[in-house]
Design a binder for these strands. Sequence first.
RNA 1: GGCGCGGUAGCUCAGGUGGUUAGAGCGUUGGAUUCAUAACCCAAAGGUCGGGGGUUCAACUCCCCCCCGCGCUACCA
Length: 702
Amino acid sequence: MSTNQYNRFTVTAALPYANGPKHIGHLAGAYIPSDVYVRYLRLSGKDVIYVCGSDEHGTAIPNQALKEQTTPQAIIDKYDALIRECFDKLGISFDIYHRTSEAIHHQTSQEFFLTLYNKGLLSEEVSEQYFDEEAKVFLADRYIVGTCPKCGHTNAYGDQCEKCGSTLSPRELINPRSTLSGKTPILKPTRHWYLPLEKYEPWLRDWILKSHQHDWKPNVFGQCKSWIEAGLQPRAMTRDLDWGIKVPLPGAEGKVLYVWFDAPIGYISATRALFDEITSGNRKYATPRSDFSKADKDDWKKYWQAKDTRLIHFIGKDNIVFHCIIFPVMLHTSEEFILPDNVPANEFMNLEGDKMSTSRGWSIEMHEYLADFPDKPDVLRYALLTNLPETKDSEFTWKDFQAKNNNELVAILGNFVNRAVVLTQKYFDSEIPARKELVDVDKKALADLKQYPTLIASSIEAFRFREATANLMDLARVGNKYLAETEPWKLAKTDMDRVGTILNIALQIAASLAIVSEPFLPFTSRKLKDMLGVGDWNWKEAGNPDLLNPGTKLREATLLFEKIEDAVIDSQIKKLMDTKRAVELAQQPAVPAKAEISFDDFSKMDIRIGKILKAERVEKSKKLLKLQVDTGLDVRTVMSGIAEHFTPEEVIGKQVTILVNLAPRKIMGVESQGMILMASDKDGSLKLLSPSTETAPGSQVS
RNA sequence: GGCGCGGUAGCUCAGGUGGUUAGAGCGUUGGAUUCAUAACCCAAAGGUCGGGGGUUCAACUCCCCCCCGCGCUACCA
């Protein structure tokens, strides 16, 4: 079916997994592009719903609860609220942001499962799985470690050895142990229901490889092809877990639906909830953005079952297999639902040269950005939009973020609008002047103006959001160029009719900018419309040279954007480094304890408090400082390998802990009489051990 | 190992089904200008399109080999 035969759109954005905060890579992957797309559709008067919600099941939630010493419910409540609030503040305009923990979702998922089950499409199989007797749970591959059978690495995971890279299954591990309890797991038979993906291979070949070779993105298509060619296998749709959606079958106690079975169904549940809430007037999660006043409770079906509905899934590349293979097979075999027409998955966005990762502390979390830049959601949207990982992994840097703000949003877009409005203020007392006779340069500007909305629209429709964003900025460039060419500030002395014509055209360009910027920069669009004293327009009015009526007054000029100074950027980069370091330290295990010793062994050491009187570098040595230390017994020379961590000036006058009865030893030709004790931090840095308050030199440490 | 996607100016990236001097933005340099948040506008410099073969009148674009990065490899969400 070609695009123009569709009468309505169902747009989904990947359900964020509610086990932690989400970062700007997630925004770039799915939420920003889908929001631009949906806002554009709405402005164009299309019938569209935009659904999302928190994904709250799966093994990682209870695990996170364990880590935070709380309950799974507390985890999902916490992160659902956090993620929900961030999306709102960033202007992600879902019609509903739902939760998979809601009853209606449990019901929808169980119905879906039973539909497949009753059709006899799920096969039941018993297999032996590792079970942790202490934690009383079956273990996912990732939670089993052991010795790699190929390289002997002692900490290989149940699915893969990170040392040699080989793919493993838990049964291959030598001396397996559970990461939950540390105990050796036992094998225990367990029964599960499988979706026989291999049976649908011919159908998938036809649907994807034949029908969507040209309209799906190469990365998406290639990934699907890779999976299909590799040969599909049955995939278990249930798990042994007590957190999730109960398997609705007799004798299935302790079993839940596989989180990847229920998560995509969440799109459907969210849609049901949307129409429930609209028609009942009971708003809990829904924030409908279009006019649904005539909606019916059952209208959710139109958005999931009618052939003239276009379903689009926005996701990151990690989700391709679920949205292009597994979920479509589920939809197809249920024989009740439509299939996605496109899945414009993005690649990943890296950060300052490294992969983004919340757990490694190398990321910009949404809530942290919003805390640091509360009035700048559009700046982030713009910086991400201009660099979306549409065809390959892309790179976010703070310097680039600053440059995009200062050189484009401020200097091009903000500046153009400001010039037009301020000039009108100056020469016409803020009253929009009329156009008089047009010369070539005016006609050229109006002709350009007319083209841009079409150009931008076609880029959006082709899921080329980066290109669309660049076109948006180019329209502002047209405005700046027009002002530079016509120079109204010079004509103001001689020809006010001409000045009026020019400013009318400049303001008309600004008005169209207010329309076409809405999908990309919704907050800025609002600000600009307020400044121009106008309401909302439809997309098809963009490019119209008569949006603004001569004689009406403009509001006071305000700046759309402000410059971001170097210091702000530098502190963000520092914050990033600090967080990473803190996480690394927290994750590094302490060095194992040494062998036991007796008290006598200990008491042989004479440890005292000393004071460093003098310190100097040692020639030709990188590590050594030559210290003069007052030990209370004497003043002696001690060579200490701390030069990479301290300057001589830093340590002079410091009280330290010193082992005084260590046998003297010549180091670099100097006799060292004792040893300064140091704490070696997890990152390898050294810390002096000083008494908490000034203590007499010679005091014994025991 | 296998498969997939990438490797294009200093940086971030575009370049359907091969065809005139390989593009954009930023950065750099020079010019012009002063209405504007020292912003805008104009211009220039800058690339053996990862490397090597091949097909072709013609290849960044098709085929083969190699190197590098990323991803997937099916119970990590």
